[in-house]
């Protein structure tokens, strides 16, 4: 089996990395680049916890082959550390105690971020739709919905 050299922009930096044909994007992000915010929950595209942003859109890194990231731009939660909107979202999650075990938090925050980039003041229904593909087994969702909802209109 021959490895594939790909170029990919990760959190603003052009990177080159040798990937194996069967590698998934999440493997490269976590193991090669040390970016641990994307989590592997189910590994089959059901739970949403591996969410990262590819070319401006949230996608599931556990069902994206690594070789398909070539020429694309990937942003993980780490890449949004200094983003004012993401700072507000993180503060809101803290204020609402929206993280319990925290495993879904990066994905939830990215989905909230994506929604708030598109809709300045979303309704609670829109927030629910935005996180509908991301599972949380601790919180019961209400604190997460409130966290994202409350950031709306504050920008």
């Amino acid at each position: 089996m021959s490895n594939i050299l790909i170029s990919v922009k990760v959190n603003g930096t052009e990177r080159e990395v040798l990937v194996e044909p069967e590698d998934r994007l999440i493997d490269v992000l976590r193991d090669d680049f040390g970016l641990k915010s994307p989590k592997e929950g189910c590994g089959t595209g059901d739970c949403g916890l591996c969410t990262v942003i590819m070319d401006g859109k949230p996608i599931l890194s556990c069902i994206t082959p690594a070789f398909q990231a070539r020429g694309r731009e990937i942003v993980t939660l780490e890449g949004l550390n200094n983003d004012p909107l993401m700072k507000n979202i993180e503060t809101s999650f803290r204020d609402h105690h929206a993280a319990q075990c925290g495993f879904c938090t990066p994905a939830m925050e990215i989905m909230g971020y994506d929604l708030l980039k598109k809709v300045k003041k979303p309704s609670k229904e829109e927030v629910k739709v935005a996180i509908s593909g991301t599972l949380c087994r601790c919180t019961g969702y209400y604190d997460i919905i409130d966290s994202i909802y409350d950031v709306g209109g504050t920008e």
């Binding site: 969410t51 590819m54 949230p58 996608i59 994206t64 989905m111 739709v129 509908s132 593909g133």
Partner: peptide, 12 residues
Amino acid sequence: VSKFGGPQIRNR
């Protein structure tokens, strides 16, 4: 579209 997979799946 609104009943298709989840938002992240729809993007791909």
